[in-house]
Design a binder for these strands. Structure first.
Length: 572
RNA sequence: CGGGGCGUAGCGCAGCCCGGUAGCGCGCCUGCUUUGGGAGCAGGAUGUCGGAGGUUCAAAUCCUCUCGCCCCGACCA
């Protein structure tokens, strides 16, 4: 493709609207343009990347036995009412009405639509397993779209849904998808990690997230170097301590600690380390129950774990007013000793502690040498805190490490949540009607493109992994001289004939402009043709990622490129 | 939804405090020269100053309302 025939409006300056690197570079490289908050047009170059990713996904989904179909963007309210999600999904579900005042929504996901299809068409366990997928535009009316393609409202997603007659079959279907995802992101040329994840509101029992590793990722993952455990930090399990502190219990001491509201301040004043302190966090449930959570001073509470233990979906730190109603202590001085009428749950790290410091449950007071059991009663010791680097792995003798990631895929074993709600059943071998066991599997296609940039860029621009690069080779004739143009034309034709995707910068621009645009666009290989090289009978091949340059004779270019590309499993 | 910031030429910005000719750089158009890391010279085009009201002889500038965008938080497959 010639640059003169491809709309690539590159920008020299950083657009003011973009903060994160993928957003900035994709705008600058002329890949995307914003239409409204979280809504983008893909320009030709950006679309080529999406299509590459799509091709890899299609191949691997098909190989895994899934069948492609295409569902509508709009779906009728009735289906969503059946599962209760018409109300439950909240404002993220963008709704509209047609001319007959019938209610519809823009699909944020398609469990309802696919389950409706399934129940109408499939009768017998003999037809299973089945797995349907589509690559389609989704709409989620996010509270705050941001970071360009990373969290758009309209985005391209691959979603798949598996149906099985029994749990064992469902696990096989799940594993197939897990393996397919592993191949997909590997083939995309991305560094990623699959981690155990929280099922959240979608329900079900098992889920894994596929995370592209990037410092700018919003998600935090923990893993042990043995490879035995990797999880989203919000999910990461921590085992109870295996031994308790056997020290003698010392007498409780009251200490005057005016103005020391933070863990740091208390530790500085009392000359103790934070791991000798227990903080008392007062949370309020949606039903206005106040719960005290005890966490070691150097640890952080994990609200998702707290919610799971309490069997609720959301919880927030109690307001000043609520705190005042249950404790005479102002914020910063809450403590478990003498706390009346509310549940006290402790992270199991507390179980190993003796003679620790707690808030005094009254103004300007802390207590030293507090002990659970003697000074206050804990309803239960549970896993309530957020994992952090250095914590012991729950599956090995190793320690956990932390790394940032971008969620690009999520696989769920759903169970029967949707099939039961919508009465999607098949007859099993005994002639009994059983609800289908479902799984659902998503890949954010446009987000994968953005994540690839977050992971692969430098000061000059993007550095695309070869399999998803918009082009393989960027052909850069540096002058308009006859020999240079002739060589460029010949090489272009010979590479195109071999199926190599070449972007030929045929603009009458100076070398610097072409180099800078090429670096910005980030095509993996630059084929540079200049007078200097031709005088010595060579053209130059530059690898974008390393800047490494090799001279090649024009005759040898075709085989050289074939050699370079043969190292990759390219989508066809 | 809470907090913060920003809307002035295609892009990046200045001007606003202290009201009085709408500017700079890049880009764009024409011509000539130039051509290995964002060229030079000469000439040229481009603005409902986000929108609506108000104050004023006079509003990009002051006031009120509104719309949009970005960032932080809450939230999130």
């Amino acid at each position: 493709m010639r640059t003169s025939q491809l709309f690539i409006p590159t920008l020299r300056d950083n657009p003011g609207e973009a903060e994160v690197v993928s957003h900035r570079l994709m705008l600058r490289a002329g890949m995307i343009r914003k239409v409204a908050a979280g809504i983008y047009t893909f320009l030709p170059l950006g679309l080529r990347v999406l299509k590459k990713i799509e091709r890899i996904i299609r191949q691997e989904m098909n190989r895994a036995g899934a069948q492609e179909l295409l569902m509508p963007i709009l779906s009728p309210a009735e289906l969503w009412r059946e599962t209760g999600r018409w109300d439950f999904y909240g404002k993220e579900l963008l709704r509209c009405q047609d001319r007959h005042d019938r209610h519809f929504c823009f699909g944020p996901t398609h469990e309802e639509v696919i389950t409706d299809l399934f129940r109408r068409e499939v009768r017998s366990y003999r037809q299973l397993p089945m797995n349907f997928y589509q690559i389609q535009t989704k709409f989620r009316d996010e509270i705050r779209p941001r970071f360009g393609l990373m969290r758009g409202r309209e985005f391209l997603m691959k979603d798949a849904y598996s149906f099985d007659a029994d749990e064992a079959g469902a696990r096989v279907s799940y594993q197939k998808m897990y393996d397919a995802y592993d191949r997909i992101f590997t083939r995309c040329g991305l560094k990623f990690r699959a981690v155990e994840a929280d099922n959240g509101l979608i329900g079900g029992t098992t889920s894994h997230e596929f995370m592209v590793l990037a410092e700018t990722g919003e998600e935090t993952l923990v893993y042990d170097e043995e490879g035995s455990y990797a999880a989203n930090v919000e999910r990461a399990e921590l085992l109870p301590p295996d031994q308790e502190d056997g020290a003698d219990q010392l007498p409780l001491e009251t200490i005057h600690t005016p103005g020391t509201k933070t863990v740091e301040a208390v530790c500085a004043l009392l000359q103790v380390s934070p791991d000798r302190l227990v903080k008392t966090l007062l949370y309020e449930t949606p039903a206005h129950e106040v719960v005290a959570i005890l966490i070691r001073g150097d640890h952080e509470a994990n609200t998702i774990k707290i919610c799971r233990h309490l069997g609720i979906t959301e919880i927030a730190l109690a307001s000043k007013e609520t705190v005042a109603a249950v404790s005479p202590a102002p914020l910063g001085f809450a403590g478990p000793v003498g706390l009346q009428g509310i549940r006290i749950l402790a992270d199991h790290g507390i179980k190993a502690m003796r003679n620790f410091v707690v808030g005094g449950n009254k103004p300007d007071t802390h207590l030293k040498h507090a002990n659970w059991g003697r000074d206050f009663t804990v309803e239960a010791f549970l896993d309530l805190r957020r994992a952090q680097a250095g914590d012991p792995s729950p599956r090995s003798d190793g320690r956990l490490h932390e790394v940032q990631g971008i969620e690009v895929g999520h696989v769920f074993l759903l169970g029967t949540k949707y099939s039961k709600a919508m009465n999607a059943t098949v007859l099993d071998a005994q002639g009994q009607e059983v609800p289908a066991i479902m799984g659902c599997y998503g890949i954010g296609v446009s987000r994968t493109a953005a994540a690839a940039v977050e992971q692969n860029h430098d000061g000059k621009g993007m550095v695309w992994p070869v399999p998803i690069a918009p082009f393989h080779v960027h052909l850069l004739p540096l002058t308009a001289s006859e020999t240079v143009l002739k060589t460029a034309g010949t090489l272009y034709d010979s590479l195109i004939a071999e199926g190599v995707e070449v972007l030929w910068d045929d603009r009458n621009e100076r070398a610097g402009v072409k180099f800078n645009d090429a670096d910005l666009i980030g095509t993996p290989f630059h084929l540079i043709i200049g007078e200097k090289g031709l005088a010595q009978g060579v053209v130059e091949f530059k690898r974008r990622k390393t800047g490494e340059v090799v001279n090649v004779q024009p005759d040898a270019v075709q085989s050289h490129v074939k050699g370079l590309l043969s190292a990759y499993d390219l989508p066809r």
